[in-house]
Design a binder for these strands. Sequence first.
DNA 1: GTCTATAAACAGATAGAC
DNA 2: GTCTATCTGTTTATAGAC
Lengths: 217, 217
Amino acid sequence: MTEPANPIQTPKGTAADLIAAGLLLFGRQGFAATSTRALAAQAGTNIASIAYHFGSKEGLRRACGEEVARRIGAALSGVTALPATTPEAARAQLELILRRMAVFVTTSRAAEPLLPFMLREVAEAGPVLDAVYSALFEPLHRRLCALWAAATGQEAESARTRIVVFSLIGQVLYFRIGRPIVMRRMGWTGFGADEAEMLAEILVANLHALLDRERLS
Amino acid sequence: MTEPANPIQTPKGTAADLIAAGLLLFGRQGFAATSTRALAAQAGTNIASIAYHFGSKEGLRRACGEEVARRIGAALSGVTALPATTPEAARAQLELILRRMAVFVTTSRAAEPLLPFMLREVAEAGPVLDAVYSALFEPLHRRLCALWAAATGQEAESARTRIVVFSLIGQVLYFRIGRPIVMRRMGWTGFGADEAEMLAEILVANLHALLDRERLS
DNA sequence: GTCTATAAACAGATAGAC
DNA sequence: GTCTATCTGTTTATAGAC
């Protein structure tokens, strides 16, 4: 989730160009609305190369999903591997993850072509979703559930824990999904340069409020 | 078109059947992936009737958007019109709105064909979005911002208020969007009959925690 | 590996009978 | 208003030259 000092090297060649085009156009317009001609044009190649490299348009979609899973998985590994021995440590790690998520969805350059593609796949429940999901949402859900359980003493598998984790992730994702349309329709001029900071601050305040309340009950 | 005596009752006839088919299939597969033939088959009519009643496939999409706006607007009018004179009243109304949203996204039969269609339009940023948005998200955002401002004494137009409102709505919507895939992938068997109750309870607890923390700072 | 040309299927829209 | 048959353009996938 952090920007690596040495940014992930994107492979070169026609296949990589097509995957980049797929991430961009599938994410921007959706799978069905994107023609193979548009993909080839965006990649600076011809239509036939899609069949040559990926078998079909659907194959390119799959390759895009695997590429996303690969990059996201690498970016998340540092987050999902941290241990949490005490409630205090679990709380601190929940806070850390939320801060990184806030930065990721608002300002991370790495997220730019990946996030729209992923959100599309979630919305379309496409066949690629499992790869993306198992690389991102599943470890994130599991990790947050485990941390919440460690911080509160509740069951990680309980419905309550699950719903709380849903709400934590949902706050971040809806912020990303809804921001463009809300800003356009309501004439909001933007949140400024400190947008990520402010979102993170509110997410963390929200988290601590939830945890404190949980401890009291 | 005359207003039916029972507002829940859906109008009859081929045009209404096509709108119902559009809400269902556009919501399920997306606009681009849904063919006019599939729409006609779902509605139990022929392809030509789409052009006859709505001019084009795009016209049917617009009519679906207006239908959603009409129904949602009616369902929301009671919520967005309530006055809030004191901070305590504002807090109580925030709680009420969250409870209604929780019920709406989890158990309301009325939401079933509408919500997937709306979420698609949001994801696709389709041309219908403005009608849907102005009927639902805009009054909801404005109302929640105003209530939050009334409950905390903050500015309704401030970035902080906007982000808080985003997070409130996001918790509910992501719960609806992410639930199917998370349940499928993680083997969750469901949240039980009291799902809406539990979601509402957590949303409300979240709200009070946020408000209390806001008052202290 | 890359490309042009094309095949086969499909899309949305329409003409015209009823 | 409804429907069948059809037009026109576009889609994905492929064949075959280089």
